[in-house]
């Protein structure tokens, strides 16, 4: 536990020092504020809801990119600098090193999201009475959950890649697949293989970005058109509550499983 804490604090300190944490927080705040203004300056009782709905689409683009890249650099960067061997020659296990890095990065990204969207929400609330903060806060939490899931995938890429460049390329490729290709590709493939409900359900749960999008839409305005074919199918067959639980479980699984696989691979590697 002591070693995990030491690695975690170092990651947090690195994030603050390299200023990416502050940079991303500022970027999130600017995006949220700009979007609230683009809603026609209407930041009244519907302001938060509209801002939230608009932010969902931006969030599922930005948060996975940031988290995948940070996760991918975590181990590959240490390996390239030669510091990985120095760290692993200490009384620390491979699992503890990965856990410390993951926790440190997760706290850092959650902080950037909370600071950025928090500051934007605060500024919006200064001008109009707040009536619908709940959905906005839920959206911020979902962004954090998506960050945890994609960081875990990034760490897996980092362990597999033998150089930082390859890890970062892998992260961008993963982002491209999860965010841009998945919707069309996976649904098309699923329908081609089998158009059964189970296949569609697997497709919805098989991507943390899609799971976050569906959860966010379900929480803000469960409109069947916005939910898309996968979300509509889930809500229609399982109901909103069961769908939400399944999607949340999917996010938890995406946060744990890639990291678990990364630990197993990392333990079998030479340093």
């Amino acid at each position: 536990m002591r070693a995990i804490r030491a690695i975690m604090w170092k990651e947090l300190r690195d994030a603050v020092r390299s200023r990416w944490l502050v940079g991303y927080a500022a970027a999130f705040a600017v995006v949220a504020l700009a979007l609230s203004q683009l809603q026609g300056g209407d930041i009244g009782s519907q302001g938060f809801n509209r801002t939230t709905a608009g932010l969902i689409n931006l969030c599922i683009l930005l948060v996975p990119l940031l988290s995948l890249v940070l996760g991918a650099a975590a181990i590959a960067g240490e390996r390239e600098r030669g510091t990985l061997a120095t760290l692993l020659s200490q009384p620390i296990s491979a699992a503890e090193l990965l856990a410390g890095k993951y926790l440190g990065l997760t706290i850092a990204v959650w902080s950037a999201i909370a600071l950025g969207f928090g500051a934007a929400g605060f500024l919006v609330a200064l001008f109009e009475p707040i009536t619908d903060v709940k959905h906005y806060l839920l959206f911020v939490l979902l962004s954090g959950a998506l960050a945890s899931a994609t960081l875990s995938i990034g760490m897996l890429i980092s362990v597999i890649a033998d150089s930082r460049v390859k890890a970062l390329s892998g992260a961008v490729l993963a982002w491209f697949l999860l965010v841009l290709v998945y919707d069309l590709g996976a649904i098309g493939l699923a329908l081609w293989i089998s158009s059964s409900g189970r296949t569609l359900l697997a497709v919805a749960l098989g991507n943390p970005v899609e799971a976050t999008r569906l959860l966010a839409v379900l929480s803000v305005e469960p409109d069947l058109q916005i939910l898309g074919p996968l979300g509509s199918y889930m809500v229609d067959r399982l109901g909103t509550a069961t769908s939400a639980v399944l999607l949340l479980l999917s996010l938890v699984a995406w946060s744990v499983a890639p990291l678990g696989i990364a630990v197993r691979i990392f333990q079998s590697q030479d340093s």
Binding site: R2, R5, R81, T86, S89
Partner: peptide, 29 residues
């Protein structure tokens, strides 16, 4: 490894940490 002190051929340390911070970080580990 609790019983080992290791000096690698070309010590690779975190370049952004000072000597004091490096000592403290490894002391924590």
């Amino acid at each position: 490894r609790r019983l080992i002190g290791y000096v690698p051929q070309q010590p690779a340390l975190h370049g952004d940490l000072s000597v004091r911070e490096t000592g403290m970080f490894y002391a924590d580990l």
